[in-house]
Computed example of a mutant assay.
Amino acid sequence: MDTEQNVQLDQLDAELIALLTTEPRIGVLECSRRLRVARGTVQARLDKLIDRGVINGFAPQVSPAAIGFVVTSFVTLEIGQRHGHGPVAAHLRAIPEVLEAHTISGSGDLMCRIVARSNADLQRVLDQILAYDGIRRASTIIALAEQIPYRVLPLVQAAADVTARR
């Protein structure tokens, strides 16, 4: 499969993604009306975006703070190389407060975003993370305030703009 082809978005793709992001409950027919294209065009574009992995879900976005998890932290983990990333990731996956984990370069091996109900609860979560023998050390940074929430629409628009300039 041609990777370059997978990353190309045009303006209609970008507008469709923006519309579905801002109004996730909108139907295909209403999308076609607002974008002024045929319903079949919207459905075909949507299917293509899903097949290519550009759109990977339609689930609601849940705010951890709104359900009581008001502390967000980023944890860098150093793991024992004989254990490998797979078993450590399986351990982390079993901890509900671990929202995501990424293999990283640099002084650590994994970077995790975790949430907790309080600073004391954060200690409990960290103890649970560190209970696994394959994790040697954790370095934690507590997020004080969110300045830019997770977003992809500016990136989608930039990708469409690059495609349009080609």
Rank of each mutant, 00 (worst) to 15 (best):
Thr21Ile: 00
Thr103Tyr: 02
Arg124His: 13
Ala59Tyr: 09
Met1Lys: 08
Gly53Ala: 02
Val54Thr: 10
Val54Cys: 02
Val37Pro: 02
Ile148Cys: 07
Ser105Glu: 04
Glu78Ser: 13
Gln11Cys: 03
Leu130Ala: 13
Leu49Gln: 04
Phe74Gln: 14
Lys48Trp: 08
Gly84His: 03
Asn119Trp: 06
Ile67Phe: 13
Ala160Pro: 05
Gly53Lys: 03
Leu122Pro: 06
Leu155Glu: 13
Pro64Asp: 09
Leu20Gln: 01
Val71His: 05
Val28Ala: 09
Ala94Thr: 04
Gln11Lys: 13
Ala65Trp: 08
Leu46Met: 10
Ala44Gly: 15
Leu20Cys: 00
Val162Gln: 13
Ala89Tyr: 00
Ala116Phe: 03
Gly86Phe: 04
Gln43Ala: 15
Cys112Ile: 08
Leu9Trp: 11
Ala90Leu: 11
Pro96Glu: 14
Arg136Ser: 10
Arg25Val: 00
Gln123Ala: 15
Ser107Leu: 07
Pro60Cys: 07
Val62Arg: 12
Glu97His: 08
Arg52Phe: 07
Ala120Gly: 12
Gly86Pro: 00
Tyr132Trp: 10
Val7Leu: 15
Arg34Ala: 03
Glu146Ala: 11
Ala160Thr: 08
Ala94Phe: 05
Thr3Glu: 14
Leu77Glu: 09
Ile148Ser: 11
Glu4Gln: 15
Met111Gly: 05
Ile50Phe: 01
Pro87Met: 08
Leu9Tyr: 10
His85Trp: 00
Ser105Trp: 05
Thr21His: 04
His83Asp: 11
Val28Thr: 13
Asp47Arg: 12
Ser32Gly: 05
Ala164Pro: 04
Thr21Ala: 03
Pro60Met: 06
Asp10Pro: 04
Arg151Pro: 01
Thr3His: 10
Val152Ile: 13
Phe69Gln: 12
Val28Cys: 06
Ala131Ser: 15
Gly134Asp: 08
Gly40Leu: 11
Ile17Cys: 01
Gln81Lys: 07
Arg25Tyr: 02
Pro87Asp: 09
Leu16Met: 00
Ala158Gln: 14
Ser139Cys: 03
Ala90Tyr: 04
Arg25Trp: 02
His91Asn: 09
Ala158His: 11
Asn119Ile: 14
Asp51Glu: 14
Arg137Phe: 10
Ala59Lys: 10
Arg33Glu: 13
Leu29Val: 15
Thr3Trp: 13
Gln147Ala: 15
Val162Asp: 11
Gln81Asp: 02
Tyr132Cys: 06
Asp127Asn: 15
Leu12Ser: 05
Arg137Thr: 11
Asp2Tyr: 05
Gln11Trp: 06
Asp2Ile: 13
Asp133Lys: 13
Thr72Gln: 14
His102Asp: 07
Asn56Ser: 04
Ile55Leu: 07
Asp109Asn: 12
Leu99Gly: 08
Glu97Pro: 03
His91Lys: 12
Asn56Gly: 02
Asp161Pro: 03
Arg93Val: 02
